[in-house]
Amino acid sequence: MKKKLVLMTVLLFGLAVIFASCAGMQAKPTEANFKSPVITLESFEVPQFDGYYYYSGKTKPTKGKAGNHGSPLPMSFLFNVNNPNSYPVLSEGVKFTVAFEGFDLVTYNNEDSIWIPAGKTTQIRATTLITTRSALLSLLVTGGYKLKAKGMNPWQAMEKWWAGVSGYTTPVTVHEGAFVFKADGVTKVLPFKATFP
């Protein structure tokens, strides 16, 4: 009896080890077999729209402290990430810059870890936010000359964009984008850019 029990235990253990090894060997990621995931911008939305406004620090607020503040423009991007590999892939972060009409407004970044199963598509949402204050500063220090060359001032540009982006008529571009993927120690960084609509 004792012999039977011992044999059963050893057999079960042996099978477990064999199965585990096979599972590992079946889809061992390598630099050579790691196919690039396919990224597409599925949709873009403005989750909340509060109109266009700006208060300078000289304006007395109804409550709270005065300061240079402006209306927010939250932006949410939904990406489809398809994993063509026969093993799961880990997305370890994404970054991209949002631009309207060639003007960079914000650089988004996260280091979230999200698994994408073998042969499946996972949706990854990235939400960021600008305000008329942050956009003003960004425009002035990185796009001042370009605006001037186009005969525009930042206020005109922002008023147009706030209406156009929330109404989905102004194209929103994500560029300088990069997803970082990992599979068992192998890293792949995938650049991307897209425009919506």
């Binding site: 650089t107 970044n109 942050s134 500063l137 960004s138």
Partner: peptide, 18 residues
């Protein structure tokens, strides 16, 4: 700082740090 008053130099620094 990738969006503020010093983003003309801050964005490249942030990317380099990462």
């Amino acid at each position: 700082d990738t969006t503020g008053a010093t983003s003309d130099v801050g964005k490249d620094y942030a990317l380099g740090m990462s």
